[in-house]
Design a protein around this nucleic acid. Sequence first.
DNA 1: TGATTTTTAGAGTAATTACTCTAGGAGTCA
DNA 2: TGACTCCTAGAGTAATTACTCTAAAAATCA
Lengths: 233, 233
Amino acid sequence: MTSTKERILNTSLALFNRQGERNVTTNHIADALGISPGNLYYHFRNKGTIVSALFERYSQHLLTLLEAPQGPLTWTIKTYYFEGLLASMWQYRFFHRDLTHFLHADAELAARYQAFVEIVLERGRVIYGELRSSGILELDDEQLQGLMVNTWVLMSSWAGLVHGLRPDAAADEALDESLMRHGVYQIICLEEPFLRGEAREHLEEMKARYRAANNTSTLLLGHVPGLDRTGSE
Amino acid sequence: MTSTKERILNTSLALFNRQGERNVTTNHIADALGISPGNLYYHFRNKGTIVSALFERYSQHLLTLLEAPQGPLTWTIKTYYFEGLLASMWQYRFFHRDLTHFLHADAELAARYQAFVEIVLERGRVIYGELRSSGILELDDEQLQGLMVNTWVLMSSWAGLVHGLRPDAAADEALDESLMRHGVYQIICLEEPFLRGEAREHLEEMKARYRAANNTSTLLLGHVPGLDRTGSE
DNA sequence: TGATTTTTAGAGTAATTACTCTAGGAGTCA
DNA sequence: TGACTCCTAGAGTAATTACTCTAAAAATCA
């Protein structure tokens, strides 16, 4: 028995992810819920408030994950961990999809987002730093920073990228898993050159685990099976 | 003396980049040009056609750049080359910003975009392959593919990312150069572990060249000068 | 029970916006 | 000059959409 307010958020999130925030009207949300527009606006002053509330959820969710202490950190564990992060970000993919617009339209949200990214990057640096201390990663401070930024770029735009190349992906939940795995794979590619010791031993195993199956995200894998005929009806 | 059709495209591009396609109406474009809406619609059947035509320009521009033969390829030259690519992409940054929406709204555009990405990736693989043949890069096929995908992810989302973190960047042309340079720097970070021979000698010099100045994109560099007070008005 | 507050419905509206239509100007060519 | 095509103006419209307002149901509480 969730409150109306939360049901609005849940439904909005689902619709936003599937159709894009731009294509989802407030009336549409109310309809999907079987409530009146008036009711919706009783709980949320305007559409932006819904987006803002969803960002709050998203950032809290992610920061909680990032705060969780994890004892002795191995590279394998870290990878599973990042897989979880990516999955959480995928759940709120509408946000990164229209990020620029949201930040442009709401200065307060922009400030919150900046602070959020700062914490994420900082926490990421700590994680990579721990791996370095354990001798699992070998890189200097500047390389670590570069790696961290590239990891964040990848994670925060992966969903949107995949969405662009496979417009069907939004509806097809089965694709999700495989696409997420490919995202993790690309992160592994980022880290690979710096891996040492324990990590190197598990590298092939992990790459195999996350390497996308041939039938998905083929575009990003080089060989396209049945999509090569363009233009013909 | 450019034709009205081209003036519409130029103005649309400028407005789209600055304000986002979503926030630019067709009437707005006509106003900015000092022409009537009727005139605009004489040249373009609808708004989507403008976007589509701009993508045509964009993709042709990029593919032309990518086709240009470049004789003996050094890593330094390749880096300048990528800098040019990134600059061209920045000129059409509105497109990647709302990419998902455009592809969702226009199936034909989606198909063209897919084909475009395929060619870009293929051409990128060739370039990296040449560097490998010259002994400048040391990596296997799979690593090359991973690197290529990550480079593309970075290039195609860098503008949007930067835009998200520095909403002011759209207006401030002076920031552009520095932000673009940081993008190239991140690409260097991707390649660095694989560099050998000639490239390693120029590495520090190139990193220094593209390392962003402290006063820009500070968020992505770790140390933030004056933005640390959050929440207070 | 009655009073008060919270939640809901649903009709309605003002504003926006993509796009149309008609008519007329401006080149061009015979 | 006249006919014909290309280009342009600008008023107008139908549809969408974020949001409001009033009143009533439902829950809460004394």
